[in-house]
Write a protein that binds this DNA or RNA. Structure first.
Lengths: 121, 121
DNA sequence: ATTCTATATAACGAGTTCATTATAGAGTCA
DNA sequence: TGACTCTATAATGAACTCGTTATATAGAAT
């Protein structure tokens, strides 16, 4: 039942993540998607089926072509799941924040962001 | 190479997500973790190894016990990955946002997201 | 030392994944 | 119609996953 199973499993494959990255730029056919990869067209079609079964993409029919597009709203469930643990992460860093405060503000704009600045609500 | 592979694969298993949920409440030994499940201790130990290899948990040694604890900072990478696609999702919902704006601002700082209502297992 | 407890590891089997090649089906074009 | 293109599906094999039981290891308690 859990679609989290399918979604996480779908994203566990680097080829599928690359397909998603490509689709983030816009609709693409199987041909378009297969071209940059060194794997066969049937393999791509199967990856796309996995992504679609997970609800991450959807298919439109146009002649013989089947352009795929992202369904970004599918990310919501994963986002919420991770959000639970990101909250813990923030809590952990609250202590670190205190330490950093004690060390005085000696640097600004370091690669590490003590104040969890990851999302954009 | 990508640890995203390991992280997503680790989270694709419902037993492992349950282990993580338990660890979110605090450190726990293998015994603690195995008790609520109907699977064997070796199976739990292997799940924990998968989670640790993915960087999602860490182990402390205390006598013969090996209490595990969450490493919530490991969520950052996954969070960032999903964040790319959540941004697309936000764009899609900008039209909906406009509608909601029209309905007046009735709440501030709610935990619910614009399209809330997702469960967490 | 012996025994008990906590955990890890090995060996195995069923099921799944991911690639391949070969082929089928549907739409387009001459 | 026949030939061509785009995509899906079937058959197959290697590798991995996830459970099991049996056993090994390490520390604690007696």
């Amino acid at each position: 039942m859990t679609t989290l199973d399918q979604s996480f499993a779908a994203l566990a494959d680097p080829t599928r993540r690359a397909l998603i990255a490509r689709l983030a730029e816009g609709e693409a056919t199987v041909q378009d998607l297969a071209r940059p990869f060194s794997i066969s067209q049937p393999a791509i079609s199967r990856h796309l089926k996995v992504l679609e079964d997970a609800g991450l993409i959807e298919t439109r029919i146009e002649g013989t072509a089947r352009p795929r597009r992202l369904k970004p709203e599918a990310v919501a469930e994963l986002w919420d799941f991770l959000g639970q643990y990101r909250a813990l992460w923030d809590v952990q860093f609250q202590r670190l924040d205190a330490v950093l405060d004690g060390l005085a503000a000696h640097e600004q704009g370091t690669p590490e962001k003590p104040k969890g600045g990851h999302d954009g609500e």
